[in-house]
Design a protein around this nucleic acid. Structure first.
Length: 142
DNA sequence: TCTGAGCGA
């Protein structure tokens, strides 16, 4: 099965959670319960970050796949603005937190368009940039 | 048209 091999490769490359178990032989990290600045999973929200998508997976396909587990309010595959091609990840917004949880349970690690995808809570988006508009031009006042 | 481990116009 070529599909299985590719899936295993994708899973090995992508699942940091699973690999950490393999590497922890007898070594106990200093931070046992609290990881201050580590990349931990974002807190539950209705918004999901979906990665591992096929480059050919479209927004509607993403919407369709995640709709099986709850009411999808919004879905988007992130594409490059200049080329228009998928960046291989996207976002799915559910109506409720429960649906979002079910969506993760139902789709994380599953196949979509031949690729193993990963679904997790999306981080809150990047804070809006400060306005910084120059209302004072050299000629504005005199 | 393509990229691959990534958080969006």
């Amino acid at each position: 099965m070529a599909l299985t091999l590719r899936a295993a490769a994708a899973a090995a490359a992508g699942s940091t959670r699973g690999l950490s178990r393999l590497f922890s032989t007898s070594f106990i990290p200093p931070m046992n319960s609290a990881t201050p600045s580590a990349r931990e999973q974002a807190e539950p929200s209705t918004n999901l970050f979906v990665s591992g998508l096929s480059k050919r997976t479209t927004t509607e396909k993403l919407h369709e796949a995640f709709s099986q587990f709850g009411e999808v309010v919004h879905a988007r595959v992130v594409t490059d603005r200049v080329s228009g091609y998928s960046k291989g990840f996207g976002f799915v917004k559910y109506a409720t937190l429960e649906d979002a949880a079910k969506g993760i349970e139902g789709m994380d690690g599953k196949f979509l368009e031949g690729w193993v995808i990963f679904a997790e809570y999306a981080r809150p988006r990047q804070p809006p940039p400060p306005p910084q508009n120059n209302m004072a031009s050299p000629y504005s006042r005199y």
